[in-house]
Amino acid sequence: MYEPLFDYIELYSKSELSPEEKTMIQSLLLPKKLRKKQYFLEEGNVCPFTGFILNGAIRMFSVDSHGIEYILQLAIENWWVVDRQSFINQTPSKYYIEAWENTELLVLPRPNLDPFLEIPAIKAMFWKMSENNHIASQKRVDDAISLSALERYESFVKLYPEMIQRFPLHQIASYLGISRETLSRIRKQSFR
């Protein structure tokens, strides 16, 4: 069960975990299952965990006063899910994190974060993840302000082809900041 996480840590840290480190990681992270449509986090609650997805799909979103959802993250296997601000600062979240498919995760409770980060490979992994997250966030903002809807969709498909199969059109449209109708038109034009 923990092997995908060990592989992920070793890939991102570029170092091998010792048997003792693997045992420590197993003692710090807990298995968790979510049914489709079950919440990992609800708005107003403090995010108690960060989760590594073993299998399944999850979405993170906010809801405005008119009930419109805004997708911040779509995540599948080997992705981490968390409301970082809520998790780190232990403040109420303004987001929902919901299983889009039946999902299995390994979750790290907030009290276990410091011992987890004491493992050298984990520190290196988190540093690399932080870099990648910042680059991806910067690209997403730049794409949103400088690319057409078609270019944003094409970039998304190129970067995340598996997401197209796992999430419905309206959620991908929300993630891209365009209407479902616009995305439908773009997809029809792409198939011609």
Rank of each mutant, 00 (worst) to 15 (best):
Y96E: 06
I58R: 02
P168K: 06
E69G: 13
A173I: 02
E154P: 00
I25P: 07
I25E: 08
S86G: 10
N102C: 06
Y96M: 08
K94L: 14
R59N: 13
N55E: 15
S130R: 10
V141C: 06
D7K: 11
E154R: 09
L54S: 01
M125P: 01
S190G: 02
G67V: 09
I88V: 14
N102A: 10
E104F: 06
L105Q: 00
F156L: 07
T103K: 01
K32T: 06
D64H: 10
I97A: 03
L169A: 04
I88R: 13
L108V: 02
K14V: 00
L41W: 09
Y70S: 15
K139R: 14
F156R: 08
V157I: 07
D143Q: 02
F49M: 08
K33H: 13
F116S: 05
A173V: 01
K123D: 11
S155E: 06
F126V: 12
K22W: 05
E154I: 01
M125K: 10
R185Y: 13
L176S: 01
Q138E: 14
P161K: 07
I53N: 05
S148Q: 08
I58Y: 09
G56W: 09
A136K: 06
N132W: 03
E20M: 05
E154L: 10
Y70K: 15
T23N: 04
V107N: 02
D7I: 12
L34C: 03
I122H: 13
I135D: 03
P19R: 05
E162F: 09
H66V: 06
W80T: 12
I172E: 06
S190W: 06
C47A: 08
K94V: 10
P161C: 04
N55A: 02
G177K: 11
L147R: 11
K33G: 05
F49L: 07
R35I: 00
I71C: 06
Q90L: 10
L159N: 14
P111V: 08
Y160K: 12
F156T: 03
Q138P: 01
R152M: 05
F6E: 07
Q26M: 08
E98F: 08
L11P: 01
P92Y: 14
N132V: 00
I58S: 14
L30S: 12
S146L: 15
L176Y: 12
R152G: 03
G177I: 15
R185Q: 02
G67N: 07
Y153A: 09
R84P: 12
A124G: 07
I25Q: 09
A99T: 09
N89V: 00
S86N: 09
I76S: 00
P168V: 10
K139N: 05
M163L: 13
L159T: 07
V81M: 14
K188A: 03
G56C: 07
E3Y: 12
I71R: 05
N102R: 11
R84V: 03
P4H: 07
F126Y: 15
F191H: 13
S155T: 01
F6A: 10
P109K: 03
E20H: 06
E16V: 13
S65E: 15
V46E: 02
Y39G: 00
Y160W: 07
K32I: 11
S184N: 14
Y96L: 11
K32C: 05
E162V: 08
H66G: 14
S137P: 00
K22G: 00
L147V: 02
G51E: 05
M1D: 11
D114P: 00
R84G: 13
